[in-house]
């Protein structure tokens, strides 16, 4: 479904990703783990076309999305929930969702489906996005991406700094998306959160792809996790 084929990317002359290869299938959650600065967020930005590739390509359903202009990447069906939420400040909840809806001209029932997943957003519908609590903002960032009806979903540390009930709610939504056949790449720092939700875990170090391990293996032997993460 979504594939990174020897992707190299960085900022200016500084190369961060070095021939990173990954793939995630429909209905699968691939968790990307690595230390700070390993290149996880850069990989997300490279997939979205927000930084130019120095080499390699990104494929969605076999089509090369890295050849598209950046604004056409989400239109191909990739939803992005960035680290730090990055909502459109100054716009209301409704307007943030409207931006998501117009990305792929989603029919109105998609909005209803998304609001059914996050009933709290319906209560806050006319409220400016920046007045929401941290958890509600994360819900909105996720809902905005789901308004695209994405084939692939990129979640960059979606549970960072959230209270447990909120983490659980977002986890349930991610699992529902898996059930609907969405291919998900999840960046997660917390091993317990990764083990609870992922199908496979891909380790990334210094911008290079490392082992990709089925999560059952790590559940059976958690010491492997420490070894792969080098902690």
């Amino acid at each position: 479904m979504l594939e990174l084929d020897r992707v190299s990317a960085g900022y200016g002359a500084a190369q961060v990703l070095r021939e990173l290869s990954l793939s995630v299938s429909a209905g699968e959650i691939l968790c990307l783990m690595g230390r700070n600065g390993a290149g996880k967020t850069t990989a997300m930005r490279a997939i979205m076309g927000l930084i130019p590739l120095m080499g390699g390509r990104v494929l969605l359903d076999g089509a090369e999305v890295s050849a598209l202009a950046p604004h056409k990447v989400p239109r191909a069906g990739i939803g992005y929930v960035p680290q730090g939420r990055r909502l459109f400040a100054g716009l209301t909840v409704a307007q943030n969702l409207e931006i998501g809806m117009r990305t792929r001209s989603s029919p109105p029932e998609v909005l209803e489906e998304v609001l059914a997943l996050f009933p709290r957003l319906r209560e806050r519908y006319r409220q400016p996005a920046q007045t929401l609590s941290g958890g509600e903002q994360q819900m909105l960032a996720t809902a905005r991406a789901l308004c695209l009806r994405p084939k692939a979903l990129l979640l960059d540390e979606p549970t960072e700094g959230l209270q447990p009930s909120m983490v659980d709610a977002l986890r349930q939504v991610t699992l529902q998306m898996r059930g609907r056949g969405v291919a998900t790449i999840l960046v997660e720092q917390r091993p317990d959160a990764a083990l609870a939700i992922a199908d496979r875990i891909a380790f990334i170090e210094n911008g290079r792809g490392g082992e990709v391990v089925p999560v059952e293996m790590l559940r059976r032997d958690p010491s492997l996790l420490a070894r792969y993460l080098g902690v």
Partner: peptide, 18 residues
């Protein structure tokens, strides 16, 4: 709406097809 979204966050506007 589109102009205000671009004003708020250029990269996110791109990430949502603008």
């Amino acid at each position: 709406l589109v102009m205000r979204a671009v004003q708020a966050d250029r990269d996110m506007a791109l990430a949502f097809g603008i």
